[in-house]
Computed example of a mutant assay.
Amino acid sequence: MSPPTPSAPIQPPADSPNAGRLHHAKVNLAYLALGEKAAVAPASLTMRSALTTTRYVIRYLIRRLLRYAKYALAGAAIAAIGGTILGTIGSGLAFFAAPGIGVGMGMGVLTAVAKFGWRHRGDHFRGGVWQGMTARALAGNDGATDEAIDAANAEERRRAENRKTREDVWMRV
């Protein structure tokens, strides 16, 4: 006699469609709680799919809640330690180490300038300058030619800026 070959997972027997509402509710709750391991599965494929999806969503939400509870517990422990031991020892030092209003304002201004620059000159910082060089490299130009082109372009940009400054009445000193 040969050993049995592995086949598809064994499905629980289907629920009879002629049973009462209480029996269907018990079968659905058992399938919701146990999944494929339930003794009897709902007869309807739609109901089985809905219960399986609901089961996965509930498990996901419980895992998220436990994860956030763990973070909250760790944060509460750190706050308790920081508020008691370190707060007692370092309260005098914190008076001198804490930033004042001027330092806070300076940090805010620097953050605003950095964000503004990243939004408005972002292509320059994120590689927009290198796109011309990449195109020339893919075209097969040599380094010396690229240097000459870059120098000519820089000189032309400087002249264009000077022209624009001279034409703008408000930029004159």
Rank of each mutant, 00 (worst) to 15 (best):
residue 169 V to S: 04
residue 9 P to S: 03
residue 27 V to T: 15
residue 52 T to R: 07
residue 44 S to E: 11
residue 24 H to N: 01
residue 116 F to N: 03
residue 84 T to L: 13
residue 55 R to Q: 06
residue 148 A to W: 09
residue 156 E to P: 02
residue 10 I to S: 15
residue 173 V to Y: 06
residue 160 A to Y: 08
residue 43 A to W: 13
residue 105 M to R: 03
residue 154 A to S: 13
residue 88 T to K: 13
residue 161 E to N: 01
residue 81 I to T: 08
residue 25 A to K: 06
residue 113 V to W: 10
residue 161 E to V: 06
residue 144 A to D: 15
residue 23 H to V: 15
residue 140 G to L: 09
residue 92 G to T: 04
residue 128 G to T: 11
residue 10 I to H: 01
residue 4 P to R: 07
residue 107 M to S: 10
residue 153 N to Y: 05
residue 116 F to C: 14
residue 22 L to V: 07
residue 68 Y to Q: 14
residue 172 R to L: 15
residue 83 G to N: 07
residue 103 V to M: 13
residue 169 V to I: 09
residue 31 Y to R: 00
residue 29 L to V: 14
residue 102 G to L: 15
residue 152 A to W: 04
residue 140 G to N: 15
residue 113 V to N: 10
residue 87 G to Y: 04
residue 149 I to C: 00
residue 59 R to N: 15
residue 39 A to M: 01
residue 3 P to I: 05
residue 56 Y to I: 05
residue 56 Y to D: 15
residue 6 P to T: 02
residue 46 T to D: 10
residue 54 T to H: 06
residue 106 G to W: 03
residue 26 K to Q: 11
residue 43 A to D: 14
residue 7 S to Y: 02
residue 83 G to Q: 08
residue 104 G to P: 01
residue 31 Y to E: 05
residue 136 R to Q: 08
residue 23 H to A: 11
residue 32 L to K: 08
residue 96 F to A: 06
residue 61 L to M: 05
residue 19 A to I: 03
residue 112 A to Y: 11
residue 55 R to V: 07
residue 58 I to L: 12
residue 107 M to A: 15
residue 69 A to V: 04
residue 89 I to Y: 14
residue 92 G to Q: 12
residue 61 L to R: 12
residue 80 A to E: 00
residue 157 R to A: 14
residue 154 A to R: 02
residue 138 L to A: 14
residue 50 A to D: 08
residue 49 S to E: 13
residue 27 V to C: 03
residue 145 T to I: 07
residue 173 V to A: 07
residue 63 R to W: 11
residue 136 R to G: 03
residue 24 H to L: 07
residue 88 T to R: 04
residue 16 S to L: 08
residue 119 R to I: 10
residue 90 G to D: 10
residue 45 L to K: 14
residue 132 G to H: 01
residue 62 I to C: 01
residue 105 M to H: 08
residue 129 V to R: 11
